[in-house]
Amino acid sequence: MHRFAKPSVFLKFTDPVLPWLAGVTALLIATGLYFALFASPIDYQQGDTVRIMYIHVPAAWMGLFCYVGMAICGAMSLIWKHPLADICARATAPIGATFTALCLITGSLWGEPMWGTWWVWDARLTSMLILLFLYLGYIALVNAFDDPERGSKAGSALALIGAVNVPIVKFSVDWWNTLHQPASIVRMDGPSVDPSMQVPLALMILGFTCYYFVVLILRVRLELNERRIRALQLSGMFDQRSDQDSNNEQNYDAGHNAEAKP
């Protein structure tokens, strides 16, 4: 596993995949949009607002999916100290946060005409808001330390503790009375959504998932570049130091200590 952490190996594996994945993403979302906006019927109770579902539900799914991915990467980073796991967790957080925020916003835009309110403090909505705060807390925490290693330790711990919230989000509609409708796709007796609405929903969920992987690959590359830059800057400083030191051997210890405690 560790060999995948090498930037060159990661690039070798993802380079040929990336254009295909981007193409599939565009295709899935384009056909999904066609079905969502044109080729699907209106709901007998909700009229056209049911079309918001085709982005609201995929966004909610991505919010949870990204969080689970981030928590698993966090665990791998804590247990095996695998550098790529930490990089993946860091790269996932902003994507998950974006989708969670989109889920809350589109839910609001759905709730206003259908429930008569933008927001209620019920279990589903509140636990989803907590999910957003967990993402934001993770992003703030991993960037709060000068030493990236310490930042990722703290962040991974937060991601793991926050994973408790994922089943709470999922089952909140069963455990508490809520305005939010109960699960209609993932349930014991099969989906209760009409097939004509399942098609755009499935396409959009797949499209959003592929979008996640495209952005993930790009963000991992970004993070790899930044780590390399940090390493180069450190070695550059070391080089300058050793140049000076070779000129004046006696100053080595004094200079070193001064640098160690600024």
Binding site: D48, H56, A59, T98, T106, W110
Partner: peptide, 24 residues
């Protein structure tokens, strides 16, 4: 018009598109 819900529906789609493109 989307059956009178146009602003909600197009608002949802627009903000989703903007956010996903901006992130990319």
């Amino acid at each position: 018009a989307m059956g009178g819900y146009g602003s909600y529906i197009w608002g949802s789609y627009a903000i989703t598109a903007i956010a996903m493109i901006a992130l990319l």
